[in-house]
Design a protein around this nucleic acid. Structure first.
Lengths: 239, 239
DNA sequence: AATATCATGTTTGTATACAAAAAAGATTGC
DNA sequence: GCAATCTTTTTTGTATACAAACATGATATT
């Protein structure tokens, strides 16, 4: 039969094809988002288009498109005729975000208790014990990683992509604050304990309890972030 | 020697300068969003950049930025190397959106019962009776307008701008489906009755009850939209 | 010297030009 | 006559060029 394999290596000369290949301007969006979320671009930093474009190895046009995209996510703010800045990390805004995230996570917990299958829960349990190990060794970065994964997996178990997208978008704001939260051992232990209860509620598919636990867990996290933000603010004022 | 009046009437030929003047590309975002939400640009319509730019009286660059912005809101979908299309109106997606909206409105109701002042509630009551009047006269468009305003005002009373933003973004999807919902008198009467209870719960600041009512109200609305969507789908298949 | 006005430079906003990819159409081989 | 490939055309993606707005620094006048 015919078929001469029409699509073997159609673009061998493309420089970026080695790694990216078919993702194009979305790369810029992800790169810029990472810079902001990881704090490399601090809150209120002016986004100079020429400089940033050069840094990301692209031109102003795709960068501006990425900026507009992230503006809709709330990570950057657009100033008419004055460009864009990284969205400020205001305590007031943080409170708002946490309240909404609380509702979204509570919903996810409820849905997850209904929809998760046993394999899902086994995966989450595995993540939980990884997290415990890193907690025991005091490895904060690794702990955070598994912590995030657990919450993400619960979110995924809810089986609602729209919910997941909203969660991700709002959670990006929280992630930005994470790097400045100085976790005391006491608080840390408490958070870990809460996670134990969360896993337990999920295991028993106790949706009502899981909702309450997730809400409380988030409220406690808010306290941490607020303390860190206030300390940060004071330091800035004293400067 | 000074000055030959360099900037007198720099753009006398600019057509749009008469009205807009200082709002710039955000105009394009709003225009495009309206076109999509009002159904002028039907779901799955390919967004031809040249044509659309001409239609909106601008160039491709600002239009593309607007498209990226709306992509983040979920109103358009980006196809790599193939441009963008108006996001399809899938029943599955609608279900998801309504579930999340339910959680957001419930949260808003709870917060509104705590934070609203008496003037706020009086305003909402006024809107409610306007809505009743239009319902009595069978004026659907006007009814929808006041209906939307009531829900928006409750949202505002929650005093959480982040919550409001998330709500607006998701609600845009629902608005798109509205124009095809063929409301029977029976259903319509039921929705109006529910609104009466909602107002009552708010008046008595019964947060728990208001939450439940808003969730139910939304669930009923979902049923309507789903029926309309299914009918629409069947019509398309039969076509 | 202080302030106001002007001049310069930088940055954003928009339009256009160019390149790569996809779609549509024509041509050739079977 | 049909199908597959090649060509042409359209459309997207990116870069650049130009114009308006903003910021900044200098000059002049009181």
């Amino acid at each position: 039969m015919p078929d001469v394999m029409p699509d073997t290596l159609p673009n061998p000369s493309n420089v970026t094809s080695l790694i990216d290949r078919r993702l194009l301007h979305e790369t810029v969006i992800d790169q810029l988002r990472d810079l902001i979320v990881q704090g490399e671009l601090a809150p209120e930093t002016k986004l100079n288009e020429r400089v940033l474009a050069e840094r990301l190895g692209t031109s102003r046009t795709p960068l501006r498109e990425a900026i507009k995209f992230l503006a809709s996510e709330g990570l950057v703010e657009l100033l008419p005729n004055r460009g864009a800045v990284v969205a400020p990390l205001k305590p007031e805004k943080m409170k708002e975000v946490f309240v909404v995230l609380g509702a979204l996570e509570a919903l996810a917990g409820e849905l997850a208790c209904r929809n998760a299958n046993e394999d899902d829960i086994a995966d989450i349990r595995a993540l939980h014990f990884h997290m415990l190990a890193h907690h025991a060794r005091g490895e904060l970065a690794q702990y955070f990683k598994y912590n995030q994964q657990i919450h993400s997996r619960i979110m995924d178990c809810a089986g609602n992509a729209t919910l997941t997208a909203s969660y991700r978008s709002l959670n990006a704001h929280v992630k930005r604050a994470r790097y400045l939260a100085n976790l005391s051992r006491e608080r840390w232990d408490k958070a870990v304990h809460e996670h134990g209860e969360i896993l337990d509620a999920l295991t028993h598919r106790d949706g009502v309890r899981l909702q309450a636990l997730l809400r409380d867990h988030l409220a406690n996290k808010l306290v941490l972030v607020m303390e860190a933000l206030n300390k940060n603010n004071k330091a800035e004022i004293a400067r």
